[in-house]
């Protein structure tokens, strides 16, 4: 949902051309924001959890798909044996009602699916968006017209509805997480293409780009060596906000039962299964819900921080009277010159 917000705000953004010290400056500005730093740490932890899922579950001695009927009290309708939903030394976060599968293992493997699908979808979106946006801005009038119309149509397609429908018709033999990432990526690249086109048009008119064109560089050389670095800031900003959005979409699709299919664990899918068990095994519901909330929140805060760090002018306009002196000091402490 933050997508429109961003379009509304970045469309009027001044061109920021990063200089040689762009990366260092970016880190300094990001570091100045406490919330963004905390969010970055949380995201790093989540990525680590996801990457280390096989290791962690090996330490725990469990795997995400094994059933444990002995831990289930079938006389009481399938609730886990023991207190707190079966939390024990073997099962750190308890077990699933009915099946007895280990919740910790499912949660960390679910993180792999969530983050993996969202990242892969973002890569697809950004790749298509950058190629289409740059091609529209640099191509002939006719190419621009065609690509811009296609982009308009893509933007008009409701993502959830199209994804839902597309997932219905692809044969179930296709690996599901890859499919979900592809479907999200192939439908929702319109906004990034629009941003890239607008930014490329702005950059194209700048003196240094004209100079390299006049010195006889080909279109592709200009695009690769002069334009892509200038596109980095808006593209990174927008991608940072696409990731949490894609996580939500994946979870929603899995929640509806058309995304990632069992036995592959996914947070959205766990929520569907858990809602009838909220009284008997509350953590079965709270864990995936909490994981989703924390992940999306951390990624959103980080995305906001990245935007502030990359576009300080827009950020300082919004800082009027909000008392964010830390950020203001960080900006003031920057050495003059070098950029823009």
């Amino acid at each position: 949902m933050s997508e429109a917000l961003l379009t509304a705000q970045t469309s009027g953004t001044d061109t920021v051309v990063p200089g040689a010290s762009g990366a260092r400056q970016f880190w300094r500005r990001l570091r100045a924001q406490r919330a963004a730093l905390v969010a970055a740490a949380v995201v790093a932890l989540l990525v680590l959890l996801a990457l280390a899922a096989p290791l962690l579950t090996a330490i725990e001695g469990q795997d995400p798909t094994a059933y444990h009927p002995s831990l289930i009290d079938s006389a009481r309708g399938g609730v886990p044996v023991g207190s707190l939903g079966g939390i024990s030394g073997e099962h750190w976060l308890g077990v699933e009602p009915q099946t007895g599968r280990d919740l910790f293992a499912r949660l960390v493997y679910g993180a792999r699916v969530s983050l993996g699908v969202a990242l892969a979808a973002t890569v697809v979106q950004v790749t298509i968006g950058v190629v289409v946006g740059v091609a529209a801005a640099l191509g002939s009038r006719w190419v621009d017209q065609l690509l811009s119309r296609i982009t308009d149509i893509i933007v008009a397609l409701p993502l959830m509805i199209m994804a839902l429908a597309l997932l219905a018709i692809v044969p179930s033999t296709f690996p599901r997480p890859v499919l979900v990432a592809l479907v999200i990526g192939l439908i929702a690249w319109g906004n990034i293409a629009k941003i890239v086109r607008a930014q490329t048009l702005t950059l194209k008119g700048l003196d240094y780009v004209s100079a390299s064109r006049l010195s006889g560089w080909g279109t592709w050389q200009v695009a690769r060596r002069e334009l892509l670095p200038g596109l980095a800031a808006p593209v990174i900003t927008y991608s940072a906000l696409l990731v949490p959005q894609n996580i939500t979409v994946e979870a929603a699709l899995s929640f509806l039962g058309v995304g990632v299919k069992p036995p592959t664990p996914s947070w959205g899918q766990m929520l569907t299964a858990a809602d009838v068990w909220y009284q008997a095994a509350p953590q079965y519901l709270l864990l995936p819900a909490g994981a989703l909330f924390v992940t999306v929140l951390a990624l959103t805060v980080l995305g906001d921080g990245v935007r502030t760090a990359l576009d300080p002018r827009a950020a300082s306009r919004l800082r009027v009277g909000t008392g964010r002196k830390r950020e203001a000091r960080a900006d003031a402490a920057e050495p003059k010159g070098g950029t823009s």
């Binding site: 219905a168 929603a252 929640f255 058309v258």
Partner: peptide, 28 residues
Amino acid sequence: GGAVGGAVLTETLFGLPGIGQELVHAVN
């Protein structure tokens, strides 16, 4: 568009017989 997608989820969750719920059924 996003809200319409959200409506599909809301209808499914609350069991409201709208086009979102019907779409999920048709997809399944």
